[in-house]
Amino acid sequence: MSKVVKRANQPYTINLKSTGSRLKKNYIGWLFILIATAGICIFYFYPMVQALLLSFQSGMGANLEYVGLDNYVRLFKDPTFIAALRNTFIYLLIQVPLMIILALFLSVLLNNATLKFKGFFRTAIFLPCVTSLVAYAVLFKYLFGEKGLINQFLLNLSIISQPLNWLSDPLLAKITIIIAITWRWTGYNMIFYLSALQNIDKSMYEAAEIDGASSLQQFFYITVPMLKPIILFTSIISTIGTLQIFDEIMNITNGGPGNATLSISMYIYNLSFEYSPDFGYAATVSYVIVILVVLLSLIQFKVAGDKK
């Protein structure tokens, strides 16, 4: 209909008409994004503001009153919070680089054109990603139990002479958590690298080969620089994920022994739902994660940007 009108009328009218319909389309466009925008405001931004307000309040359950910055002062004197913060950083600093290097290494091996059983290796290594975090966490709890398969295996190979207390030794418990997360997520990251590797021009490697560059040099001077954007992406995703780690800790060690594996998210959960509920202080602790997520993402962007 409007097409017919456009053809029949003067240019002047056409403009008027099309401006009108553009305005109308713009208005319809807003309707398309309305639910999503409203939803994100209600379920993300509004709670963020609420959490900020809560972080200045204290009290049990619903009896909250404003206490100014008391909660923030309390953070620095709270040994449990400091332990949770330290543990989370240990996971972050050891697990994320370990996993990314392993995933990079595996993807380079799998990208080899002459490799046989490529599909099998790729599927096998990706498989852990189909498990739910809770399911694999419970599985790992039993694998690493005192009489678990890991101890039996190590004993049979005479690597150890008596069972290791994977879950009740502070250091070993952290190692168990790190092994578990690495098992679950390495294949996930590997898939990203594999697909990025396929976009690298093969002739670059051929040229490097002619120039006499070793595989190691090719890896560091071609592969890594070409994959930089995707490495940045995956390390940000992993950092955000690790800062929020909850399911594994809750189901493998329940934060113990002592608070040796407690994460920040788990401490927030305990403060709100396990101990006598202190939502105000829990909200303060949760803002620490928010600040860390923003800061670490910015740092990673900065580091990756500078090297360009």
Partner: peptide, 27 residues
């Protein structure tokens, strides 16, 4: 229906990806 206004809204919405669930769980 891309317009500069909607692009701004889009960028603001993307910020919500940085919000950790633990932070909004209590509210």
């Amino acid at each position: 229906y891309r317009t500069p206004g909607k692009d701004k809204v889009f960028n603001i919405l993307l910020l919500s990806m940085m919000i950790p669930f633990a932070a909004i769980m209590i509210p």
